[in-house]
Computed example of a mutant assay.
Amino acid sequence: MRTRPTGRQLRFGVELRKLRERAGLTATQAGQLLGVKQNQISNMEAGRIGVSLARLRALAGQYDCTDKDVVAALGSMTADRTRGWWEEYREILPAPLLDLAEIEHHARRLRTAVTVHIPGLFQTTEYAREVFRQDVPELSPPDIEHRVSFRIKRQAVLFRESPTPHQAVVHEAALRMQFGGPKVTRKQLQHLLDLSEREHIALQVIPFSAGTFAGSGQSIYYFLGPVPQLDTVNLDQSHGPVFLDAETQLEKYRVLLGRMEATALDRDGSRDFIHNIARDL
Rank of each mutant, 00 (worst) to 15 (best):
A107F: 08
Y63H: 13
R2L: 06
F223A: 12
E45I: 01
H191L: 08
H146S: 14
L195T: 04
E21Y: 02
G217R: 14
I277C: 13
V71W: 06
L175T: 12
T263F: 04
L195F: 13
G31C: 04
A54D: 13
R90V: 11
V233G: 08
L158F: 11
E261A: 15
L34V: 05
R109F: 14
L235P: 02
Y253Q: 09
T125E: 13
T6F: 10
F243S: 11
E197P: 10
A107S: 15
R133N: 05
S76E: 03
F208C: 06
T185W: 10
T112G: 13
R254A: 08
K187A: 15
A107I: 08
M260I: 00
A95E: 10
L281N: 02
L74G: 03
L33A: 00
T82M: 02
L250N: 15
G35Q: 05
G31H: 12
L244C: 11
G211F: 10
A156G: 07
P226I: 01
R154Y: 15
L244N: 08
A278I: 00
L256A: 12
G75W: 07
A73R: 06
R259K: 12
L19S: 04
Q167K: 15
R111N: 02
F159H: 15
A210V: 08
G84C: 13
D236K: 00
L192H: 03
L139W: 10
L74A: 04
I41R: 05
L193I: 06
A174T: 06
I220P: 09
Q40T: 06
R133K: 11
V71M: 00
D236N: 04
D64Y: 08
I92Q: 11
T263R: 15
D280G: 02
D231N: 14
L16Q: 03
T124A: 09
V184M: 01
G215L: 04
R17V: 00
R4C: 06
A23Y: 03
E261K: 07
D280W: 09
P182V: 07
S270I: 08
A168R: 14
H105A: 06
G13C: 02
R22W: 06
D143F: 01
A262P: 00
L203E: 13
Q134N: 03
P226S: 09
D69W: 05
V71R: 04
P182G: 11
D266Q: 05
H171L: 03
D143V: 01
V170N: 14
P163Y: 09
G35E: 05
S76C: 02
V255F: 05
A23V: 14
F150R: 08
A23Q: 14
T124W: 02
G269L: 01
D135R: 00
Y127N: 10
K18M: 06
E199G: 09
D272I: 08
I206K: 05
G181D: 09
S162A: 09
T263Q: 13
L74Y: 03
I220G: 12
K153G: 01
Q167M: 14
V116W: 12
R129D: 10
T82P: 00
L53S: 15
H200W: 07
F179L: 13
L224M: 12
V148W: 05
H117D: 14
H200I: 07
V205M: 05
D99G: 04
I220S: 07
S270H: 13
S219P: 07
R2H: 10
P142Y: 02
Q167I: 15
L33C: 01
A60R: 03
R108D: 05
L10S: 04
G13S: 05
V184I: 15
